[in-house]
């Protein structure tokens, strides 16, 4: 029984090539991440991939869709990897499993699978975790005190540490978190700036991957640039106005998941806008909201919520930014 798809749907082979290239583009960032945070990152990627494949297969079966072709498109793995790279590298095994299950089952398959999900599955999974388990999500490993591989595995699976380990190695907050908490307590900005360049280094990895994807014509330039512009549109003036109160734009670009999101998350063709102008608005909105939630909100980083909120506007954006119908425009562009 060969299924005959309508011709305008991309052939499965094409989707899987694209996804494979996206995965490849993630590799430099992953390598730097492993360098800074240790092999725990790889374990998270593995756990996420296995969970995603199992959940996807189970849901496809339940939906009565052929399992293998859909699994081979690798989109589940991309979601899994993005999630694994957004969650704390030393989070307990159940965290990445719960997040991936929610992303694949609820955010992707319940809406009809690849191509039909209005929300970015990885960001939905991340939002679930940050709302449900804020304490665990705030605990990032400290790059200065790396645990050895065995200790990392022990921590992720058993939640115990070998004798003599420093608790800070697993429970230190992210730089953005330290910054926000400190500023609210009235501490000086200078003393709160990140001590290590690990996050910035990893961010450059995402940047490299993103540039390569753009060269390969797999992602448009509008969304990532608009997102960064949106972020800077608030970060720059506020920083110039009160440099003691607001962190520098560079910090906002390099910290948190800014560049990971710009290259790999807002460029998701399914849940993002599809017209050029729509992409500009979508990306700009994500950037603005990210800054607002990051700086004034209650959660450590705002990217996931910003993306989900802008996902909701996509149908509207697509409708109002469609290329003009003959003679129906009044000189606005």
């Amino acid at each position: 029984m060969t299924a005959i798809h309508s011709t305008h749907i991309a052939k499965p082979a094409t989707v899987s090539t694209v996804m494979l290239k996206v995965l490849a583009a993630l590799l430099p960032g992953i390598a730097l991440s492993v360098y800074c945070h240790g092999v725990g990152v790889l374990l998270q990627l593995l756990l996420a991939s296995l969970t995603a494949l199992a959940a996807e297969a189970a849901m496809l079966r339940l939906r009565g869709v052929a399992v293998l072709p859909a699994l081979k498109d690798l989109s589940a793995i991309v979601t899994a990897w993005l999630l694994a790279l957004s969650l704390p590298p030393l989070g307990g095994w159940w965290m990445i499993v719960v997040a991936t299950l929610f992303a694949i089952i609820v955010a992707k398959q319940l809406y009809g699978g690849l191509g039909n999900n209005p929300f970015n599955p990885a960001m939905a999974g991340f939002a679930l975790m940050v709302v449900s388990f804020p304490a665990q999500m705030a605990q990032w490993g400290s790059p200065q005190l790396p645990l050895d591989a065995a200790a990392q595995w022990q921590w992720i699976f058993l939640h115990t540490l070998p004798a003599g380990s420093v608790p800070d190695a697993i429970s230190s907050a992210t730089p953005l978190d330290v910054l926000k908490t400190g500023l609210r307590q009235g501490q000086a900005l200078a003393g709160l700036l990140p001590q290590s360049s690990a996050q910035g280094l990893i961010a450059l990895g995402w940047l490299a991957g993103g540039l390569w994807l753009w060269r390969q014509k797999l992602i448009p330039w509008q969304t990532p640039l608009a997102m960064l512009a949106g972020l800077l549109a608030l970060a720059l003036p506020l920083w110039l106005w009160q440099p003691a109160q607001y962190a520098s734009p560079l910090l906002h670009l390099l910290q948190g998941g800014t560049l990971l999101a710009a290259a790999f998350i807002v460029t998701d063709p399914v849940s993002g806008a599809s017209t050029p102008r729509g992409r500009l608005i979508f990306g700009f909105g994500v950037g603005l909201l990210t800054y607002v939630i990051r700086v004034f909100g209650n959660f450590p980083d705002g990217i996931a919520f910003a993306v989900l909120l802008m996902n909701m506007t996509v149908p509207l954006l697509d409708q109002y930014t469609r290329p003009a119908v003959f003679g129906h425009r009044k000189g606005r562009s």
Partner: peptide, 20 residues
């Protein structure tokens, strides 16, 4: 504790699942 279920989003998601 699984906070999402207790917070308002859990209400929306839960109701959607029941309707489905």
């Amino acid at each position: 504790q699984f906070l999402l279920a207790m917070l308002p989003p859990g209400g929306f998601i839960g109701l959607a699942l029941l309707i489905a």
